[in-house]
Design a protein around this nucleic acid. Structure first.
Lengths: 122, 122
DNA sequence: TCCCTGTTATAGTTTTATTATAACAGAGAG
DNA sequence: CTCTCTGTTATAATAAAACTATAACAGGGA
């Protein structure tokens, strides 16, 4: 699980961590039941403070991607509760598609892009 | 152009403004060439400071949704430059679809959701 | 006992968002 | 010309969020 932080980005470090871990799960680079590095190890690995990693792990726990316990650390355990996931997806897509629509990106182009991106997830 | 700000939201006010204006353009509620209220008028209308509105207008200008001039104010003028728009769309979709994939939302469900959302944009 | 784990607490710094005033220059209307 | 509207700029203050720095605690495993 290689994680790269862009310290120049306007995106918060803990958000970058969350996103890259979610990407790692989607791409099957880290599998259900496996553990992430401890907060201290991950912090040292990417060069940030322990609390920043802890915040990321807790957000992921809150969003149902991890299960944290004292013994095994942050374990990938995805809660497949679809209702809220769908609601969130719709919210994200609504604004992204509005921008695309303004820029004359066709619905077909969007569908094609979706398929292209989904190739990496299975 | 009715705009509603959720002051409880964790989303920044200027971002809410940007998103709602983009939605307004996508939904054809405000058309190319039309003007938005002046920064002062909009600020009073939604109950925030002038500078917050000014920031939103400038972000939208930067992103190619508005053209601001001293006489006519913030005019809807969408720069249809597709390359950067596509790049940004891909970035947005990449993380949204990763989350969806983790939650076992199928590609077909995503396509259906896209079509549903796009119904409002034409 | 020692070491690793997550967790909590406290404090300080930095950055961002927001507000508050104020002023300036350009354009249009009277 | 004067008045009033526009966006723009400057300055300052406040509030919140993000990040870091130390430190300590409790639980589990070797």
């Amino acid at each position: 699980m290689y994680i790269e932080i862009d310290f120049e980005s306007s995106e918060a470090i803990y958000e970058q961590l969350c996103n890259q871990i979610i990407l790692g799960i989607a791409k099957n680079m880290i599998r259900e039941g496996e553990s992430l590095p401890s907060v201290r190890a991950m912090a040292e690995q990417v060069g940030v403070n322990m609390h920043t990693v802890n915040k990321a792990y807790n957000v992921l726990k809150e969003d149902g991607f991890l299960s944290v316990d004292r013994r095994r650390g942050a374990v990938v355990y995805v809660d497949k509760e679809k209702i809220t996931a769908l609601r969130e997806l719709k919210r994200d897509l609504t604004i992204a598609l509005a921008k695309a629509s303004c820029k004359n990106i066709s619905r077909a182009e969007v569908h094609a892009l979706i398929d292209e991106i989904c190739e990496d997830y299975k």
